[in-house]
Structure formats: structure tokens, C-alpha cells
Simulated assay, not measured.
Amino acid sequence: MLKLIRIILVAICCVLICVLGTIFSLIRFRHPSNVGVMARWFGRLYPLFGLRVEHRFPDNVDQNVPAIYIGNHQNNYDMVTISYMVRPRTVSVGKKSLIWVPFFGILYWATGNIFLDRDNKNKAHNTMTELARRIQQDNISIWMFPEGTRSRGRGLLPFKTGAFHAAISAGVPIIPVVCSTTHKKIDLNRWNNGKVICEIMQPIDTQSYSKENVRELASHCYDLMKKRIAELDAELAQVGK
């Protein structure tokens, strides 16, 4: 019964956010801060899932320096956990098919996000070039999930290199964002589903990297994020004892 109530409440809230958010975003059509506003609206829904979410930000988080943020992509619960971490003047890159998701697709477009055609390698490459241009020209940051898909309990998946090519081309840092593991830890029939920690890590300078050693940069970021996720999981396990 609790699960059904939660599903209904979440569905109502999501539709309301999408409708009101679309109106808001059309008024400020594709403003670069629209995405962050909408992400935080969704990120406030976590109590409906029986979660407590701690958001950890570094002291320099509001310096508003253009960067490419990379996050771990676990499952649909990312909508109410890691999404809250999206900063002002940050837009995301998502697959082209998102436009067809009822209510959400039009919101995703109106807020100013960037669509990626993953089935066309040439278009995908051009999108990365376009990202670098927009970062420099519009003074914005980009949010990406370098795994390319939800991990669904498989741990941190290998990173694709698109985000790292774009960061090197634009000459901006990579900023990892991590969320503790949520796979199989949320039961919608359970009142209390515990705590989740989301954290923005320190920027990683890309100046010493080039397209020739871009995979080295991706591997470095992967190792840092994997280690930090394990540390967050261990911290939560210790608290739960």
C-alpha cells in the first residue's frame, strides 16, 4: 500500500514539475540556469522515497568557473539524489530519444539541455566539438554521465571519452560528482530507506592532457570516483552499525 501511495504522489509531483517547469523555462527560454533550477526541484522529492540525502559541496562551489561535471549514473533514483548537485549555468547532455518522454521531454528541451545522437558517431563527435564551443562562447558548464548508461548495480561502468575530449578542447577542468550506492537499497514499501550522500569533488586540471592521452585522463577520473564512492558506502555502512 505504501509503495502504491508513493508511486502516485511521485507521479503527480513529477507531472506538476514538468508542466510548471516547462512554463517557467519557456518564459526564460533555454536560459543556462534553467537546468539547475529544475534539477533542484526534482532533487527535493527524495523524502517521498523514504530517503535522507546529504549534499556535500566544496567551499569554492559558487565560483561559477566553466567546467565539465561528470557523475555516476546508477538508476532512476538519480532524479532525486545526484540531480540536486547541478550548479547554475550548467546544462546537461542527454540522448536524443529523451524528447519523446511524456511531459519530461519538452521540459528537457525548453530548459536548454543538449541532445546527443548516439547512433550516429559523426554527429556525436560534432556534438562534442559544439560543447567546447558553447562552453567558451556562452560561459557555461556541462553535466555528463560518462558511463553512457545506468549502471543498475554493476558498479561504476567504464567511461566513454566524449566528456574528456570536450574538456580538453575547451580548456576547462573536469569536476567529478559522486553519489553513494542506491542499488537494491530502496524499497518503496519500507518507510525508512536510509541515507544517501552526494558529493562534488575537487576539480581536475586538464591542461596537461591532449587528445593523444585522453584515455589517461578518463582513467584517472574513473579511479578517483570509484574510490570515493567506495569511501562513501563504507561511511554509510559504519553509521548504520
Rank of each mutant, 00 (worst) to 15 (best):
M85H: 05
L20C: 14
L98F: 03
S219M: 10
V101N: 09
G112N: 07
I12N: 01
I197P: 00
F104R: 02
A237D: 15
I70E: 04
R6S: 11
I200H: 06
Q63N: 15
N192L: 13
D233K: 00
A167C: 08
H165W: 08
F145R: 01
W41T: 05
K227R: 12
G21D: 09
L188F: 12
V53N: 06
A11Y: 00
G21C: 07
V172S: 08
G94C: 11
P146F: 02
V35R: 06
L98G: 03
V178S: 00
C198G: 04
I82L: 12
R56Y: 05
V61N: 11
A167Y: 06
L51G: 09
F103M: 09
R215S: 13
S180L: 00
M144K: 00
N64A: 15
V19R: 01
I82E: 06
P173N: 09
D78T: 03
F115W: 14
R118N: 10
I200Y: 02
L26W: 04
R6A: 11
V37I: 15
V86I: 15
A218P: 03
E216W: 01
W143I: 03
M1C: 10
E199V: 04
P176D: 07
V37E: 11
P102W: 07
I229D: 00
C179G: 07
L131A: 04
L236W: 03
W143G: 01
K121V: 14
I27H: 02
S219K: 11
I8S: 10
I99P: 00
I7T: 14
I27Q: 04
S210C: 13
R154P: 02
P203S: 10
N113W: 05
E235N: 03
H55I: 13
G43Q: 09
I8C: 08
G50R: 00
K160I: 08
Y46W: 12
Y69C: 01
L217F: 04
